[in-house]
Amino acid sequence: MKLKQLEGLLGDLQQFSNPKVELEQYPTRPHIASRMLYMAENSFGDISGKVVADFGCGCGTLGIAGALLGAEYVVGVDIDSQSLELASLNAEDLELDIDLVLWDIRNSKWRGQIVDTVVMNPPFGTRKKGADIDFLSTALKVASQAVYSLHKTTTRDHVKKTALRDLNARSAEVLCELRFDVPQLYKFHKKKEVDIAVDLWRFVP
């Protein structure tokens, strides 16, 4: 599948209608999601034929992108049941089979390393400090092959140090810097839309 085609399909997915600020629910835009999964597949072979988990999947964008690129098995995990209902509808519309689990990543417990690759757009930890690192910590325990994640560029040094030193990642590499456009979703957003710089990371557990 071509990148444009993938981005187009992701653009048709339903998004949150009432995003929850405490969960830092921001949709992963098709532009970013498609590039993230496309790179994981075409540069590293981490998607097709693999078991892929989408942590904090929201309405399922990254997991669905994985399934579209040939992942053998996709499981999406989120703490919000309304998001999972949307994810389920989105997958159904594209005739994809995706497993969904209502779970808090931060205190989830996984047996073994059945998952090959974790893809995630974690909460950036702006509202709840450390949430991004909590997600990364679990992801590095669950994945056997790779973890793809988005983190604010301003936290680059911290993320790298934490991943390598505290979470025992074998490598932590920024693949590219992207512009994450955050539309005015919440009342505390004063500007109509802001761009924040985010890094697309690839970690090897």
Binding site: V51, Y73, V75, D97, D99, L100, V101, N107, S108, K109, W110, R111, G112, I114, V115
Partner: peptide, 13 residues
């Protein structure tokens, strides 16, 4: 939920 997922889930109380 399929049984591959079941094979991964553990109770974390």
């Amino acid at each position: 939920m399929r049984l591959l997922t079941h094979n991964m889930l553990s109770c974390n109380i």
